[in-house]
Amino acid sequence: MSDRWRRIGGPGSLLLVLVLGAALWIAPSLDGLTLGDAVTDGGGVDEALDDLEPSPIVLVGFDPDLGTYAEIRPTVRTLLADVLARDGRIAVVSLTPEGRALATAELARLARGEANAARLFDLGFIPGAEAALVDLATGLTTSGGAGGQALGRELAEDGMDAVDAIVVVGGNDLGPRSWVEQVAPRVGNVPILAVTPTILLPEVQPYVESGQIAALLGTVADGAAYRDGAELGNLDRLTEQTEVAVLPILIGLLVAAVAMGQALGARIVGAARSREREVS
């Protein structure tokens, strides 16, 4: 990095942050500038949840990444509220320490929001990466878990047979791909739904195309479309009331495009000049 770039990099970055902050403050929402639109359909999650048995048990593999969770957080909260709104019951398990930290925070938030505690069960943290997933698929145990007693008993008696659907909140090492590879072949026809940050889309999309993942919320737009269509009733209190501001994202993308275009243009000009010198 050159000294000149170092000199302008700091103030330039700060200016960008200030502009984004101002845009966030002045125009939190603009008509016609929305994330969810007719192009996205909410990733098919609504339909996948509709297909479940009444009062389903949904196992949530909660392993997002601390660095990208903010992107999927509103969608995850809406999805959890949606399952509860359908009289569903939720068992949460984490296989990574980061996931466990965030799962604990989300369960605490649900408790503060007075979600029905009988419909929640915390299976805790299971160490062992892929081996833990196999262990979970072949012998789900509730020892050390906490939450609704009836739900805990049902899970203890029937193990994975009691589970009607799996929701994988991805972002960390053990994401939807690991669940598809380790759990899906061992549990039969339990549909896997996934919520992942955009950066994982190229990794997860092939599993959606092959039908191994029943539904995916893998982009910001998918998440927004799903949140728009979710009917939560009074459980709306469990979701984030503030939507992602689109204008700052748009401004940031334009700035990024200009910066990249400037770099690309400089490279092309440099290459042209160097060829000109060679010719002359």
Binding site: L24, W25, A70, E71, A245, P248, L253
Partner: peptide, 18 residues
């Protein structure tokens, strides 16, 4: 995708502060 994703995170942090 990465740029979009990181912008969402930055906006989230600014939203947290504001």
């Amino acid at each position: 995708y990465l740029v979009l994703s990181r912008l969402v995170l930055l906006v989230d942090r600014l939203g947290f502060l504001l």
